[in-house]
């Protein structure tokens, strides 16, 4: 079943289109990773999908309802983890969660239970009665996520939930997302960190300049650029190797030497490595070989010529 969809949605800021006729569908049980560099329109897309921002054109539907997608009944099934840490600094973790649980109409015992569950889920039970003012960045992030969980949403939208935190908290969050999926929650997850997406997403949508550049499973996306392979040789005698000869091997597009390390970029495929290796071995002893498989970062680089992760950590 399709939980959320956008059909040719256009959103302009002034004359520039933040969303340029976007089509998107999210099906039940998926973890959709929305990947793109800063300023690609990820946050705008999420704000449009949740009704925070009105769009200029196009149709949005939530839970199969496109006439009135942002009705209370639909909102009840929707959870949003904001990019900002939107938690109450003055209230303890538990109180903050009770607030949001109350907003979603939970009462007394039910509320207590769900709040305790949510705290347990993000691993903050021990800090239930502490004020988030003194929390570390990762703990605040986790609390920020818990705020969207007390009402058990069917569709959870997470806007960069792992920005600027320690690896431990990050792993915790990624595990939680997996666990949520196992419990049947559908998740839309934005990030500009491809490792995360590679790890958890069942489908990836790559966004750039307000357009969907590519979409598919991680495997499919990598298939499309499975054309290059970076092979690194550690050799005994780098000077003795005829670079010209290596370059002339069919499929090799680039050869570079630094120190005792030779990096060859070549078309992937059976036999290539053999041929290169045989040339190299003729002239020098080989100490080590390392071949990098393409990842999503390469997909993005190939499609747009841009690094995904420029300026990371500047926020």
């Amino acid at each position: 079943m399709t939980l959320a969809s956008m059909q040719s949605v256009l959103k302009r800021y002034g004359s520039c289109a933040a969303l340029d006729y976007i089509d998107l569908e999210i099906h039940e049980g998926e973890i959709v990773g929305l990947l793109g560099p800063n300023g690609a329109g990820k946050t705008t897309l999420i704000q449009a999908l949740t009704g925070i921002l009105p769009v200029d054109q196009g149709r949005i539907s939530l839970f199969g309802d496109s006439r009135n997608p942002f009705s209370d009944a639909n909102k009840q099934k929707l959870g949003l983890v904001t990019q900002e840490i939107a938690v109450f600094e003055e209230l303890t973790a538990k109180e903050g969660l009770e607030f949001f649980a109350g907003i979603y109409g939970l009462r007394r015992e039910e509320k207590k239970k769900r709040v305790a569950e949510a705290l347990e889920f993000v691993g903050l039970s021990a800090y239930a009665n502490k004020v988030p003012h003194k929390f570390s960045g990762g703990m605040k992030r986790r609390l920020n996520i818990a705020c969207a969980l007390t009402h058990r949403p069917r569709l959870l939208i997470m806007d960069e939930p792992t920005v600027g935190i320690d690896p431990q908290s990050r792993n915790h969050i990624l595990e939680s997302v997996q666990k949520l999926r196992e419990q049947g929650t559908t998740i839309l997850y934005t990030t500009h960190c491809m490792e995360e997406v590679q790890e958890i997403a069942s489908r990836v949508v790559i966004l750039d300049q307000g357009q969907v550049v590519k979409e598919g499973t991680v495997q499919q996306l990598i298939e499309t650029v499975r054309h290059e392979e970076t092979i690194i040789f550690d050799v005994a005698d780098p000077l003795g190797i005829p670079l010209r000869q290596v370059e002339s091997i069919a499929g090799v597009s680039q050869v570079s030497v630094s120190g005792s390390r030779i990096t060859v970029i070549s078309a992937a495929g059976a036999g290539n490595l053999d041929r290169i290796l045989s040339v190299v071995q003729q002239h020098s002893g080989v100490l080590g070989i390392q071949a990098d498989k393409p990842n999503l970062e390469d997909v993005f680089l190939t499609l747009t010529g841009k690094q995904l992760r420029d300026r990371e950590g500047s926020r």
Binding site: D208, V213, L303, G305, K306, D310
Partner: peptide, 18 residues
Amino acid sequence: GSLSTSADNGFLLVCVLP
């Protein structure tokens, strides 16, 4: 295929076709 441009670091145009 796809085509994208960027102006971050000089003008860059990338066109990819299957």
